[in-house]
Write a protein that binds this DNA or RNA. Structure first.
Lengths: 174, 174
DNA sequence: CAACAATACATCGGTCACGAGGTATAGAGA
DNA sequence: TCTCTATACCTCGTGACCGATGTATTGTTG
């Protein structure tokens, strides 16, 4: 997911690591902060894989910067990751939101719609967090107020997202 | 989080690894599946730390089972992790839901309320995923339909959770 | 003028997680 | 009889991520 965010931000414009870090922090930092010691090795991985190139520039304020630019391979790889996300990226809300944040880079409405439809299919499956045998339990059937909360919140999220997904799919298809 | 789920399930009753895995899969598997190769080492870690003990029983169907029982240290450790969660466990919905699923084991209403209040404080902070300078942007200000979706869904979740939190805190306090 | 914060990058050791694969038993279906 | 599925546990290599720590430079604040 971190790699997707790096590729996604650099797709628009070259950035140096520090600026990239600030953008990633703004995007997902309030939920899941990214440590510097995670970002810099991730940049190195992507560089080693030929997805980005670095150019050293004198720092405008302090130390010299490494300006990062996506290669053509990098641009292609981002589109690939957006078009063919792992199932994890569909089901885990953190990953899904990161994917959504850059989905516009896909630039192909049917491909975008196909990704949204995978999320739609996931949300339409009858799933719960709590079961009696195989039967999913509803919030009303739980005594535990905290577990009831999980289902209440999850249901509200799911409803809002389903309605957004259907609207957006309609406008992508239409 | 995996460790919290293990401790949480074993707090109620001793279980063997395979059954534990099924319960964890039911709880969070549709969002974030847990591999066997993650579960068994985690059990070993907890055993090594003295938080649980294993007893070998002949398998009812096939191979022999290792029935896992929490030690007194393990029971104490679960309560500690529930009462003093890391900030991560408060902000990341996956982690937060796992914590909520076992919060009833805290058995002390003021301690439960204190945890809920940490989540409340987090949700009341004005945070977005997208900014113009320092100002958080609202869904209406975004052109990108996918980014607008993120904010729409996050806002619906937040509203539902705030209302649930306030109700539940009122009943815990009253 | 000294201390501190912000900019900018990096390494190191350790933990956690995953996929691929392995071992073994028992019952069900072809 | 053979294969398949379910039960039940395990190891190994790899990679992701974190906290702690280090190195510079510049601007701000007391």
């Amino acid at each position: 997911m971190l790699e997707l965010a790096i590729l996604g931000f650099l797709y628009d414009t070259p950035l140096h690591g520090y600026e990239l870090r600030k953008r990633i922090t703004a995007l997902t930092g309030h939920v899941k902060p990214i440590a510097e010691s995670t970002l810099y090795p991730a940049i190195k991985r992507l560089e080693k894989a030929g997805l980005l190139e670095r150019a050293t520039e004198p720092g405008s304020v302090a130390a010299p910067r490494h300006v990062l630019t996506l290669t053509e391979d990098g641009r292609h790889e981002l589109r690939r990751r957006l078009a063919e996300p792992a199932q994890r990226d569909i089901t885990d809300e953190n990953r899904w939101f990161t994917l959504l944040a850059f989905l516009r880079h896909l630039e192909d409405a049917p491909a975008q719609a196909a990704v949204l439809r995978r999320r739609l299919a996931f949300l339409e499956e009858p799933a719960s967090f709590f079961y009696e045998g195989d039967r999913p339990l509803s919030a009303e059937e739980l005594d535990d107020p905290f577990r009831r909360g999980i289902l209440t919140i999850a249901r509200a999220t799911s409803r809002a997202e389903l309605s957004w997904l259907r609207d957006t799919l309609a406008s992508l298809d239409g």
